[in-house]
């Protein structure tokens, strides 16, 4: 029972990270057909900027500061990417993807040049470094922070997409971008907003991943990105609820399988992916293929 609680909490903590990374990825892909290979780099940038703030400011103040700095850094880099790299290649979808591949290679290398290849230790504030007793299991407090923030983001995104005009434009754009523009709406503004929003979530994920591991390293984002891709495929591009469900499934399956046998976790995620692809006859957009 204790093990089950611990595994579930860890799985949900990972799921929270996957959701933070995949939600932006999914919206960007759904709206713009751009598979953003630079998204992992946004995560890493958020992580390092957050770490730098936490390195200078200790305690809860530093924690809040690093979360905000991570969000700002992720959003800024993502917005710059959209403006400087994605937008000039509009109408050349393949080149857009290739350019993000290039950024995905270059940015982590740049981070490595600045902060070194070795991981940097992240000191948590006292209250966050401990554990919480849940049914006899000592669950690290950080996991709850991760889960709480992911749930908050899920609710915020649902409200944003469901209740605002901007959200309406994004949801419609995921379905049929041409028709949205034919209604007199400039979708490029929605593209920029979605890219910045996705970058902010990725930057936040970078900080949280640093807290979760107690350290940051240049390859963090890339390793999260692979699982985020799996979550996007399982959840359906452009669907926030689908992304959340898929993130939970991947996080839990990974943790439970890892307990059964070390290194089985990652393999089981791929088996899950293959099984779902075999069983459903639908394409990525969630419409029948």
């Amino acid at each position: 029972m204790t093990t089950l609680v611990l595994l579930t909490a860890t799985g949900l903590g990972l799921a929270a990270l996957y959701f933070l990374v995949a939600s932006g990825l999914s919206l960007i892909f759904g709206l713009m057909d751009v598979l953003n290979f630079a998204h992992g780099a946004f995560v890493s940038i958020g992580g390092y900027v957050g770490w730098t703030v936490a390195d200078h400011l200790s305690g809860t103040f530093g924690l809040v500061g690093s979360l905000l700095a991570g969000i700002a850094a992720g959003a800024a880099v993502a917005a710059a990417t959209e403006l400087a790299v994605i937008r000039p290649l509009y109408g050349r979808p393949l080149d857009q993807v290739l350019a993000t591949v290039g950024l995905g290679l270059a940015i982590p290398a740049l981070l490595q040049a600045i902060w070194g290849a070795d991981s940097r230790t992240w000191l948590l504030p006292g209250w966050l470094a401990g554990t919480v007793n849940v049914a006899g299991a000592h669950v690290p407090t950080v996991r709850f922070l991760l889960i709480g923030i992911a749930v908050a983001l899920l609710i915020a995104l649902r409200l944003l997409l469901g209740r605002t005009r901007a959200g309406l434009i994004v949801r419609a754009g995921v379905e049929d971008r041409e028709m949205v523009t034919a209604l007199g709406i400039d979708v490029r503004r929605a593209n920029s907003a979605v890219f910045a929003l996705g970058g902010a979530a990725a930057g936040l994920a970078g900080v949280l991943y640093g807290l979760y591991q107690g350290s940051v390293s240049p390859g963090d984002g890339t390793s999260l990105l692979v699982f985020a891709f799996v979550v996007v495929v399982l959840g359906g591009a452009g669907s926030i609820t689908g992304t959340a469900v898929a993130a939970i499934a991947v996080g839990l399956v990974q943790q439970y399988a890892d307990y059964a046998s070390a290194s089985l976790g990652d393999e089981s995620v791929v088996i899950l992916l293959a099984a779902v692809l075999l069983l459903r006859r639908r394409n990525l957009q969630g419409r029948p293929a």
């Binding site: 005009r165 309406l168 434009i169 949801r171 419609a172 995921v174 379905e175 049929d176 041409e178 028709m179 949205v180 034919a182 209604l183 709406i185």
Partner: peptide, 14 residues
């Protein structure tokens, strides 16, 4: 070009 995931009212609001 109807947005099938949106409601009728949302299609019109857009």
């Amino acid at each position: 070009g109807v947005f099938s995931a949106l409601t009728v009212a949302e299609n019109m609001r857009l």
